[in-house]
């Protein structure tokens, strides 16, 4: 693992979301248990965008959904604006959730193929009985306009008539309908063409400014995250490797895993020479994660200490925390 620890947590009034010791486990066949998220603590300030970065299977999506209690973490606290969502009764949770909305990876799967775009975007308003029918339609039109779609053209069509990028816009419009204070974006651009990715990333930035959102942005690609985030958390096999400001992490990554992730981003320059050997192999199974530091099996700097003892997060530079016995700094 990288590791657990609380050194990176901030004690300030504008922390909107504070996750404390989140554990999510799934039972798989044969009585085995997948440790999807192992004791993660992190906080997000108002107006901040926290990027959660890692490979498939590192638990980043599970962590994102655990915030919304979909499903709820096995143990741990999810403090949102001072309320622990894990302790709320069902009915209260239902209304508390509306303050946090989610945008999903697969733009096609996240829209019901049998509903028109108008119905999809208006659905959250319908659920909560907000306004009259006419009010709701006006609101839907406004939302579609804001995400760059022409309401006249799209309102009565169905999602399968649209491209991936347009579906993602529809999905964003829906997520904003209840005027949430926090938006969780789960790989919102990884299913899209590069040329469309930039449009959606810009749109998310615009929406963040317009609606004053706090964001959690989940991605496997450090390049995508760069433009949108104020704080980065790198995850590996259910643990935090490194947390810090983008400036610090991109210019001098302290964790060997972060540096490997940076090296694998394709560079659109044929003359570019990679300075490190690319990360080899794939993460081990989360059913039986390695002892000590979970990254040690693929780490170029692994030592016997790494197998024996789990590294805790500690500050290596201002606002840069790393869970590694042998950091690169």
């Amino acid at each position: 693992m990288a590791g657990s620890g609380y050194a990176h947590l901030r004690d300030s009034d504008d922390v909107v979301l504070a996750l404390r010791d989140i554990v999510v486990e799934f039972r798989v066949g044969g009585g085995r248990v997948v440790n999807a998220v192992s004791r993660i603590s992190i906080d997000v300030r108002r107006g901040e965008t926290l990027a959660i970065v890692g490979e498939s299977g590192c638990g980043k999506t599970t962590l994102g959904k655990a915030i919304l209690q979909l499903p709820a973490p096995n143990t741990g606290q999810v403090m949102f604006e001072g309320t622990d969502l894990t302790k709320l009764p069902k009915e209260q949770l239902r209304s508390a959730r509306t303050a946090i909305q989610m945008v999903f990876q697969d733009p096609i799967s996240s829209l019901d193929p049998r509903m028109t775009v108008g119905e999809i975007v208006g659905e959250p308003l319908w659920i909560w009985g907000r306004g009259s029918e006419a009010d709701r339609e006006a609101k839907v039109r406004e939302l579609l306009n804001n995400v760059g779609l022409d309401p006249e053209l799209v309102l009565h069509r169905r999602s399968y008539e649209f491209s991936g990028g347009q579906c993602q816009r529809i999905s964003i419009a829906r997520s904003l309908a209840l005027e949430p204070r926090m938006l969780i974006c789960d790989e919102p651009v990884s299913a899209l063409d590069v040329s469309i990715q930039a449009q959606i990333l810009n749109l998310l930035q615009d929406m963040k400014d317009r609606y004053g959102l706090t964001m959690v942005f989940i991605s496997h690609d450090l390049a995508v995250v760069k433009a949108v985030s104020n704080r980065i958390m790198v995850m590996y096999l259910g643990k935090i490797c490194e947390v810090g400001s983008p400036d610090a992490i991109y210019s001098k990554p302290a964790h060997h895993y972060t540096s490997a992730l940076l090296d694998s981003v394709p560079v659109p320059d044929p003359a570019y020479q990679r300075n490190n050997v690319a990360l080899q192999g794939e993460p081990p199974s989360p059913v039986a994660p390695p002892t000590g530091c979970r990254f040690r099996t693929r780490c170029p700097a692994a030592s016997p200490l790494c197998a024996a003892e789990e590294p805790l997060l500690r500050e290596v530079a201002p606002d840069q925390f790393v869970a590694c016995h042998h950091p690169r700094l």
Partner: peptide
Amino acid sequence: IPTIHMQS
């Protein structure tokens, strides 16, 4: 193309 070298 988003790159790691652009300004955040």
